[in-house]
């Protein structure tokens, strides 16, 4: 991954920055330029809460590329407090212990490396709350 591709998304990946429509209040993550609910084009910056619950999940048994280093690894959809849903890895939990509805918190983690010499890409992963 080239640094600019990763860097551009840093506000979202590090701080969960989302856009909140100034007209209808809908919140979008990642931020949008036009409200999908009402069509308004002006937004306020907001930060999503880091707490939520798992709505569905899967355990990837053998990931490709550098993901083999963390295989098996779980992924999930999380409904954050306030209702915005995001997709993330779910770590620090045994696959057998994962349940739909379990409370989780988004933690700052390394997501991928670009080989041994490339840029290190960080972001959020869910952990049991």
């Amino acid at each position: 991954m080239q640094p600019q591709e990763f860097w551009r998304e840093i506000p979202q990946r590090y701080r969960l920055e989302a856009s909140k429509c100034l007209k209808c209040g809908a919140v979008f993550f990642p931020p949008r330029r036009r409200c999908a609910a009402c069509g308004h084009e002006k937004f306020a910056l907001t930060r999503l809460p880091r707490e939520g619950k798992v709505t569905t999940f899967s355990v990837i048994r053998q990931g490709g590329g550098d993901m083999i280093r963390i295989s098996p690894y779980a992924v999930c959809l999380v409904e954050l407090e306030g209702g915005v849903k995001i997709a993330a890895q779910l770590v620090d939990v045994e696959p057998e212990a994962i349940k739909t509805g379990m409370p989780v918190r988004l933690e700052f983690r390394k997501i991928r490396e670009t080989g041994d010499a490339g840029v290190i890409c960080y972001g959020y992963k869910a952990v049991p709350a």
Partner: peptide
């Protein structure tokens, strides 16, 4: 940028659909 970046593969996306459907 928000699914594949996080290591979420296609089988995993459909697996999450399957789990939702089953539950």
């Amino acid at each position: 940028a928000y699914e594949a970046y996080n290591g979420i593969t296609f089988p995993a996306l459909y697996a999450m659909i399957a789990r939702s459907h089953m539950e």
